[in-house]
């Protein structure tokens, strides 16, 4: 992690860190990178990839259409609506 990558990440995440915050984040990542490097020294050739931290599987549901809400109920809390649409600030020029 360096300032260039951090700047790119800020742009992608729509964040704006102060100089002090940047320093703190860079130091945090430097520590984590060191930990990762230490871990990468371990031979994991024959270790099966962990797919999830919890040893449980998902439940699945049958493909059945059920209408649970009306549009009006869902749009009660919407700041702006127009003709049944949610209305948001203009996205493209």
């Amino acid at each position: 992690m360096d300032k260039t990558i951090l700047s790119r990440l800020q742009k992608l995440n729509q964040l704006s860190l102060s100089d002090k915050e940047e320093e703190s984040v860079l130091a945090f990542f430097a520590d984590r990178e060191a930990e990762c490097e230490a871990l990468s020294a371990i031979d994991t050739e024959k270790v099966e990839r962990m797919v999830h931290v919890l040893p449980i599987l998902t439940v699945v549901r049958e493909d059945k259409e059920i209408k649970t809400f009306t549009r009006d109920e869902l749009q009660k809390g919407a700041p702006e609506t127009e003709d049944g649409y949610w209305q948001v600030p203009r996205l493209v020029e």
């Binding site: 127009e82 649409y85 949610w86 209305q87 996205l91 493209v92």
Partner: peptide, 9 residues
């Protein structure tokens, strides 16, 4: 017309 973007989910 409304200078906004309308969303249909």
């Amino acid at each position: 017309w409304t200078d906004s973007t309308l969303v249909d989910f």
